[in-house]
Design a protein around this nucleic acid. Structure first.
Lengths: 336, 336
DNA sequence: TTGAAAGCGCTACCAC
DNA sequence: GTGGTAGCGCTTTCAA
């Protein structure tokens, strides 16, 4: 077997072998225009025989477009992000797009290089599902004029769509619910990276409890976005002397750690203490006890994002209404 | 501001603005050779002013190489795969490579299109961490002469490295351990997609219990690779009348579902029944009770894969020795 | 229905 | 040190 044939995986090689021009090969490969069935068959056969795979880089260069979308997430170990990605992928696939992922590990530097890499790849659209945010990045994206969608951060721009969850609403409902259960000492367990602007989420909690004036005592603790971070936070919390009867976690990923931490401290959930999450990731059904949380339609968000990216839809703002999911990790406050 | 400047993000535009040739711009962008500091600065400034991002497609086309690696996984919702990916990414980043993910959802068709897409992108190396496998795919990869590494499937080839976990070893240890605890009625809970060749993993279990001759009674159930699949499987198992005192799950992802299912059936773990997983994913520390499992160094596997891909290392076979991780989901058999 | 050829934006080699 | 320029493999007019 000739080396030439083995290595030269190009349109031209295929064309030569099929006895046609490269233009024709290109046409059949893209089911473009009308190609006589007989030549079409010849081409396809040549493709097969030569073991030919079109060079996608050449394709996008010549075509001036790509069929890839990009998504950048903060922490791919958090199932929340994976679900959004899966939703995006499904929606993208339907329209013959692929989606490239990148994760920042909450590092602004990696965010920047991720964005640059995506722009370099000339993605047709870019979704940012990140907590950290950098003004320069925002500017770069706005300037790049590539369609973008931000989840929960940033502001709409001419090429930017915003998807925002009414986190405050979810939080208020949660706090209200706990209040109704008799809880008067609550704690918020968050992570450092929660949205740059002054720990928005923490403040959301503070606002929510604030509505009850001095009837509710509270404390907040922050740690890294990981079950282990949550465990540490819980220890910190209790060693501070404050004894909440309910812990509201910024997300499920951390709530899972909190569940374990309080158990390790000899408390039982929900008899001694109630614990809540946020996001309603799959695992929350499988924790013990199953976690009370707030549902965020993650897959759906992924689909919405793709939609926004691939349509004209720009400068829009899309709101998601979260809803409480009551399970067994919360219960009435019981005086001891 | 001229449209020209705004839209024409090309090397040439930068060159023109900096008053140099494209060759020079290329040099500074790649920190190649020696470029006079003053011109270098001018170029960089032009880059900044023009908001220029090199077109990566053009780059790989011209350069004849890419700095991307690919990885294809079966089910990105299973944290096992995410961890391998994270390991790969870290290792790749160190060498200035990026890694592209694709997931097949256990579908051979998607496997094929994934592989093609990766080849089309001319990845420098391709890792397959999948359960399903197709001979044609194997052939295609072998023919493509692109360096590849397979996890637990396929056979070494001139451009292929194999990473295999000695699953049998892990399984034997687990069964032995359970036997030592007094268990004589065990069940294996697996998933359909477990390695094409006749449910290898299930057979591994059967071999392991087989060593005890008729001293151990067993049953096997299969379902989809998901905690919900596991729940169904457990129900099926018990409604079959067989009452195992220990359930060995093919992986942690399913074990999590099994844990919940037996709880729903009113049994307590490990008093009434022992449950084990495989992989030692992060969540196993946070289940209740914490899961006894077998550790597989997932991140490390990712690193090994990148190593194999980027080195000469071909046609090799790398073995991973699994080790038992004893936690609280297993206990001695207690006659009732 | 098909072919010829001009790029797409960049790298790399060869001059100067 | 720097510039000129021939491709890389493909798409896409424009003709035929």
């Amino acid at each position: 077997m000739s080396d030439y044939i083995k290595n030269k995986m190009t349109l031209e090689a295929v064309a030569k072998r099929a006895g046609v021009s490269t233009a024709t090969v290109s046409r059949v490969l893209n089911n473009l225009e009308i190609v006589k069935e007989s030549t079409r068959r010849r081409v396809l056969q040549a493709v097969e025989e030569l073991n030919y795979y079109p060079n996608l880089h050449a394709r996008s260069l010549a075509g001036g477009r790509t069929n890839s979308l990009g998504v950048i997430v903060s922490n791919i170990c958090n199932p929340f992000f994976v679900d959004v990605f899966v939703g995006m992928e499904a929606a993208a696939r339907q329209r013959d797009y692929e989606v490239l992922v990148e994760h920042t590990n909450y590092s602004p530097a990696e965010l920047i290089s991720g964005v640059r890499s995506m722009i370099g790849r000339r993605v047709a659209g870019l979704a940012l599902i990140v907590s950290e945010m950098d003004d320069d990045v925002m500017t770069e994206i706005a300037n790049s004029s590539i369609p973008a969608v931000f989840y929960d951060v940033g502001f709409p721009g001419s090429n930017i769509t915003n998807i925002r969850v009414r986190y405050e609403v979810g939080m208020q409902r949660m706090v209200q619910y706990l209040f109704a259960l008799g809880h008067r000492k609550m704690a918020f367990l968050g992570h450092h990276a929660s949205l740059a602007p002054l720990e928005i989420r923490k403040n959301t909690f503070i606002d929510a409890v604030g509505r009850f004036g001095s009837k509710v005592e509270y404390r907040t603790v922050l740690n890294t976005d990981h079950p282990n971070g949550a465990m540490q936070a819980v220890q910190e919390l209790f060693s501070s002397g404050f004894r909440p009867t309910a812990i509201v976690c910024v997300n499920d990923y951390m709530a899972i750690g909190a569940l374990r931490a309080v158990r390790a401290l000899g408390m039982s959930v929900p008899d001694d203490i109630s614990i809540t999450g946020f996001d309603n990731i799959e695992f929350t059904e499988f924790t013990y006890p199953p976690l009370t949380t707030v549902n965020i339609p993650r897959r759906h968000i992924g689909e919405i994002a793709v939609d926004a990216l691939l349509r004209d839809a720009q400068g829009r703002e899309i709101f998601i209404e979260p809803e409480l999911v009551l399970r067994d990790s919360t219960g009435p406050f019981q005086a001891r």
